[in-house]
Each structure stands twice: as structure tokens, then as C-alpha cells.
């Protein structure tokens, strides 16, 4: 793997270079529109010149919407009277232009890999993945709500990143993880990183930020029925208000619904974020709802992340970013849920 040394000034210059050929995005820290003119919510288009600022902990918005846009147009059509193509469904033309997302944290980078598991054969997700490069920054500092290590990640992890920047005394070292990373580095004249810096990073990785999901891994072996029937769900479900905040800010929640929207005779079929917290999510046409009660929906979300998903794909469907811990209106803390679940054993 190639590792280079980069100063802050050079980082700026790199971003400027990239923005000449690609669309480059950086996180926004302040309030920003969910759908601005050409950007995923919580991110902004940069063209260099503005220095990159990152806050401690995860970016305010996850990178999910670059891969799983809210919404994604699947088909378009017209219903205009007398139009020759009336009612004909067409796939919209989509941009194949590379987009570079700068400022990604290791937890979010991992989330893309996790979401890739169910979306392996989803052409829309794959197309978006194809054209998106993630430029990440490892975390020297974490928040009290961060728990990526517990979920099998690491604050210093580079998994899923095309380029991984880590701080050094006088700047960064950057690891080139993928072919897309190579493309981004092509033509840049950078010095290779020094061995000492590389080994310093390795030692940080093996000490403070070591991935350790061993404790939680016991859940994978435990019997579903017992977890499902655990009494903890009642009180949890009681306080949960079944909003979709956790699912929408979560980088690894990937559920969607599909609807047709028609305005002034122009129609589109969209796929948009859905949440298993909403009663409508599981409502059948018949009127029957298999998860008609709040407690059932709350339980589903956690068991999906911590049991159903790992049983099917291996890893947990949570990267420990802690966003839901911070933002849950009623302080449902997934870390507490996990320890309660472990206690069920």
C-alpha cells in the first residue's frame, strides 16, 4: 500500500485539483438545507480554497445519502394528454461523473461496506458506489458517544476509504487504499511517508483503537427466541415515540419504499427512505399490520441491527457512530440496549 506525507497546505491544493475534474464534497457543520441545489443533505460542494474543518466525532450527516439518495428516481414518465409517450416508463439518465467525498470518518466508511452487503445486486446503489470516492480522516479524538471499536471498527480504521488521512505531528499521512484512491493521487507530487510515521499509526491502531466486538459477538450465537421475548422491550417500546430520527441519521439503516409522484402530468417513480419505526412500513394492503404495535417496531430495529443482520451477513449493522445516541428525543441509547440484551443471556 502506498502511503504519502501531506501537509495541510497540500491537502488544500489536492482538493482544489480534484474539484477541477470531479465534484468534491465536504461536511457542513452548521445548519444546511437537506436538499440544496446539487448536494446530499449535510454536505456541501467545495471547489478548494476553503479549508476543510472537521469536528470531533462523526460528521453531522452520514455519507449514506451519496449512495442511497433520498429520493432516488427509478423511472420517469409523462401522463400529458395527447403526448406520444404518454404512460411510457423511462429510466432517467444519471450522471456517471466521479464524486469525491472528503472528511469521511472511519465509522461512516465502514457503513458503506455494511450496506453493500444487502445492496450487492442493487444497480442504483452499485452505480452510486462506482462513482463515489471516499476521502477519510481517522479520529485522534472521539466523543463519549462513540463506540465504533465495540462494533468491530476502529477510530483509526481505513476500511472502506479510498484515501485515509491520519494526523501526524506536522500534517498528515495518507494511505491509498483502492484503485479509486490511486486515481485521485495520480499526478500529485507527494513525498512518501516516513517509516516512523507509518509505524506510529500502526501502534495507535493496535492499542487505543483496536476493534473488539468479542463481547457483543456472543449475541450472534444466542437463541433469537429468548432475545425476542426479553422483558426489556416493553419499557423500551413504551418510551420510544416511533419517530424515524434514529433510522434517518443512521448510516446503516437502508430501508426504502417506492412511490409514484405525478405533478402536472409529469410522473416519476421514486425510492425514498422508509423507517421500520413507522406503522405504514409494515402495513399490508389488507389492513393487517404484523408490527402493529410500537414495541414490535422498536424491537425490530434493534434486533435487525444486532441479530437478524449479523445472522444473515456476518457483521452487526451498526458502526458505533453514536449519532442516534445523541439525537434520540427520548434518550434510547443503543449501548444500553446492547448491554441489556447481553444481560438476557
Amino acid at each position: 500500500m502506498k502511503v504519502f506525507k501531506v501537509s495541510s497546505v497540500e491537502l488544500d491544493a489536492m482538493m482544489q485539483e480534484w474539484s477541477k475534474v470531479h465534484r468534491v464534497y465536504a461536511p457542513v457543520l452548521a445548519k444546511q438545507p437537506a436538499t440544496s441545489s446539487d448536494c446530499a443533505p449535510g454536505w456541501r460542494r467545495v471547489d478548494g480554497g476553503s479549508a476543510l474543518t472537521l469536528s470531533t466525532g462523526p460528521t453531522p450527516a452520514s455519507v449514506k445519502s451519496f449512495f442511497f439518495p433520498q429520493p432516488e428516481t427509478l423511472l420517469t414518465y409523462t401522463l400529458e394528454n395527447n403526448h406520444p409517450d404518454k404512460g411510457l416508463m423511462r429510466e432517467p439518465a444519471k450522471s456517471k461523473k466521479m464524486q469525491v467525498v472528503v472528511g469521511v470518518r472511519p465509522c461512516d466508511a465502514r457503513s458503506v461496506l455494511l450496506n453493500n452487503l444487502p445492496y450487492q445486486e442493487d444497480p442504483f446503489f452499485q452505480a452510486n458506489r462506482q462513482r463515489t470516492a471516499l476521502v477519510g480522516f481517522t479520529c485522534e479524538q472521539t466523543l463519549s458517544t462513540c463506540f465504533c471499536s465495540q462494533m468491530g471498527g476502529s477510530p483509526f480504521g481505513s476500511e472502506g476509504l479510498d484515501l485515509a488521512f491520519s494526523r501526524t505531528q506536522d500534517g498528515f499521512i495518507v494511505e491509498v487504499g483502492t484503485a479509486k484512491g490511486e486515481v485521485l493521487m495520480a499526478g500529485l507530487d507527494l513525498a512518501p511517508a516516513e517509516e516512523s510515521e507509518i509505524s506510529a499509526l500502526a501502534s495507535r491502531r493496535s492499542t487505543g483503537g483496536k476493534a473488539d466486538a468479542t463481547e457483543l459477538d456472543t449475541l450472534k450465537g444466542s437463541e433469537l427466541g429468548r432475545l425476542y421475548d426479553a422483558p426489556m422491550w416493553k419499557s423500551l417500546g413504551e418510551s420510544c415515540i416511533n419517530c424515524g430520527a434514529c433510522t434517518f441519521i443512521c448510516p446503516t439503516c437502508y430501508c426504502f419504499d417506492i412511490q409514484d409522484e405525478v405533478v402536472r402530468g409529469q410522473g416519476r417513480r421514486i425510492r425514498y427512505w422508509d423507517s421500520c419505526m413507522f406503522p405504514l412500513y409494515s402495513l399490508h394492503t389488507s389492513g393487517h399490520n404484523p408490527r402493529g404495535q410500537k414495541v414490535q417496531r422498536t424491537r425490530n430495529r434493534f434486533l435487525h441491527k444486532l441479530k437478524y443482520f449479523p445472522d444473515r451477513f456476518g457483521p452487526f449493522s451498526c458502526v458505533g457512530c453514536g449519532r442516534c445516541v445523541q439525537d434520540c428525543p427520548v434518550n434510547i441509547d443503543i449501548r444500553e440496549v446492547m448491554s441489556d440484551l447481553l444481560a438476557v443471556e
Partner: peptide
């Protein structure tokens, strides 16, 4: 209202 993510909290 531009920042709304439609979570319905």
C-alpha cells in the same frame, strides 16, 4: 425547513 429529514419526530 430545508434541513428537515422527514423523521417526523
Amino acid at each position: 425547513f430545508a434541513t428537515c429529514i422527514r423523521c417526523y419526530a
